[in-house]
Design a protein around this nucleic acid. Structure first.
Lengths: 355, 355
DNA sequence: AGAGTGTTCTGGATCGATACAGAGGAGCGG
DNA sequence: CCGCTCCTCTGTATCGATCCAGAACACTCT
């Protein structure tokens, strides 16, 4: 039988409250008694108040939950995700909270929802989830504070926003491409469609894209191209099955292996863009000179590969999310944080060659 | 006022037990009533049993805690650590558990211990911690199952082991170097000493190294070299301040910038070894040809850099740790898992040049 | 009809702590 | 010596669920 507060209290001959105070409110009892209580606790093998019981009573757990679309292990593979986690971790650490990684398998929605329902946390940081996912409703239902990088119609007052203006970011990127004279352009992204298609998919208008950040990024390109007089119907949109370098290369192949080849490929993430670069290399094509390539995120490797990209700070996003969760501002305005983005031009984009 | 079981029970006109059963033991009540209860719950905005209360009563939380020496953000930077986390995550996911990252700042032991005491978890996976750290005692005290990669004298029956035979691994590596004819050798490692020294430190015998895995790895080299007739006193041991590529480069500089230069450098981790390679490159020295370099871990990047190293599977270690935690085997023998290691010889080690 | 077997639902005890109002005594100024 | 405050410590209610023994009732079998 494991010792509890009561065991120690009885041993010392004081009330349970006093033992509790010895641990949690030292100013409420004399130092002597406190020491005596600790002595007894040591002797009895009592390790201090049980966290589960304490969190029930206090109503605070000391942990924030992080949701990931993909299997947990993805979280540790994707550099952007890792940066984000770092940021959340920093904030959590400052408030003496832990980070609970909540597994969210996409195939098995029931399990995913259960994971949310059973998570012992004080709030949720939503890294990225499809808009329609029932876990998001489960979070709403729990009534805990939540921070998301995407706005949803059904969001309640507990849901806060930390993210970027996705469309504005790619609009700037699109204008950059247009200014360089590109007219035959392909856009590579994941979640362009609800099905797991590998290859070109028609996206007649951005609204058709079911997934928030892909949708907004496509919207930005759409706006930029249309404004520059580039016919959207001529833009090839290619779906990557997942957000990985390999999938990026496969997707790029669909664009590169047909005539006329596009003069520029815009990827919706750097990881995909790196894959595009791989595909170029495999065909002896030079980035910038033969085909311009544009990414999104500015992960560390992008600089070494001279990838033109849109910079956003994943760490900062994580940090802000954590901060908001652990201590939600009263002011509604403070609950909406829009972080800056910046187009970083490197060698992978260059003027379209005359043909 | 948030709704609870009671709110719903009163609304439907049944007992709380029944509502509880509706969620957790559907076979205990009629489908009709169950549906009626869910209906009422939806209407009242009840999101299901509160996880904190449930875990108190059930005695199971559905999360396992992972301890890290360094700040949480380190966990996401070190490739070996990331692989390990992936493994633990895989096991956890299979048992529908989450992963709680428990922050452990080394400077502030009191906070670290508190983090352990307050962690709402069913068990602890200890990635790596100095032997003497009070958090380890705190884990013991909590009486929860724990899995560690290092054996400690004070370990109780709840503590399980998943790791490798560290000394045997480096012994093989040391024999490899000796066979290649190396006689002037440097060993680069972190935690070779209790103080944060940057540079050569005397290690008269392996037992002096305060940190488990460094100690065992040094021991292996010590055994191999002594057996090959290499005087240990002639082996330079250099401390790196942390386990990072940069620190590895700095440490290697201490060995390379003095005469006579060692013909081989053995690093206690691949991350450090990559730093050693950087230091070589900065001086125009060729790995293998001018100075042989040996690592430990076999992280992905090692293959592309042709680094000779000792392979151990971080993922497998994590996976096994998770498995043991979530369902500890009765048999004491099953609580000790020794994973295989293998010397992977690549181009970074070669016969010592005659001078 | 009576005994036996399920199924469905109830009530109270319990998990291990914390919050809060207040009791008791010491010290102090008037 | 009274009234006051301050410091310690106590006792009970409470957090929100689950467990378990058993009640109530319908149903089958002899």
């Amino acid at each position: 039988m494991r010792p509890t507060l009561r065991t120690v209290a009885d041993a010392v001959g004081v009330s349970r409250s006093t033992v509790s105070n010895a641990y949690s409110r030292p100013d409420q009892l004399s130092p002597d008694l406190r020491e005596k209580i600790f002595e007894a606790a040591r002797r009895l093998g009592y390790a201090g108040p049980d966290p589960a019981a304490r969190s029930l009573r206090r109503g605070r757990v000391g942990a924030i939950g992080v949701l990931f679309t993909a299997s947990l292990s993805y979280a540790f593979t994707d550099p952007y995700a890792v940066q984000y986690l770092r940021g959340v971790a920093e904030s959590a650490q400052r408030e003496e909270s832990g980070l609970l990684l909540v597994p969210q398998s996409l195939d098995d929605e029931a399990t995913a929802v259960d994971a949310v329902r059973n998570a012992v946390v004080d709030g949720f940081a939503i890294f990225c989830m499809p808009d329609w996912h029932p876990s998001l409703d489960a979070i709403q239902a729990r009534g805990l504070p939540a921070v998301s990088g995407q706005r949803r119609p059904g969001d309640g007052p507990g849901t806060m926003f930390v993210g970027i203006d996705e469309a504005a970011a790619t609009r700037v990127a699109g204008e950059h491409l247009a200014r360089l004279g590109h007219r035959r352009i392909a856009v590579v992204g994941d979640y362009l469609t609800a099905d797991e298609v590998d290859g070109p998919v028609p996206v007649s208008k951005p609204d058709d894209v079911p997934y928030f950040s892909s949708r907004e990024r496509v919207r930005g390109y759409h706006e930029a191209f249309t404004a520059a007089g580039i016919d959207w119907a001529g833009v090839t949109t290619i779906n990557a099955t997942v957000n990985s370098r390999e999938a990026g290369a496969v997707a790029a192949a669909h664009a590169l292996d047909r005539a006329p080849r596009p003069t520029a490929i815009a990827a919706l993430s750097d990881v995909l863009a790196l894959g595009v670069l791989d595909a170029l290399a495999a065909r002896g094509l030079r980035p910038g000179l033969d085909v311009s390539v544009l990414g999104f995120d500015d992960i560390p490797e992008s600089a070494t590969r001279s990838l033109t990209t849109v910079r956003q700070s994943a760490v900062e996003r994580g940090r802000a999310s954590g901060r908001l969760l652990l201590d939600p501002p009263q002011d509604p305005a403070g609950r909406q944080v829009v972080l800056p983005t910046e187009l970083v031009v490197r060698a992978s984009t260059a003027p379209a060659s005359k043909e």
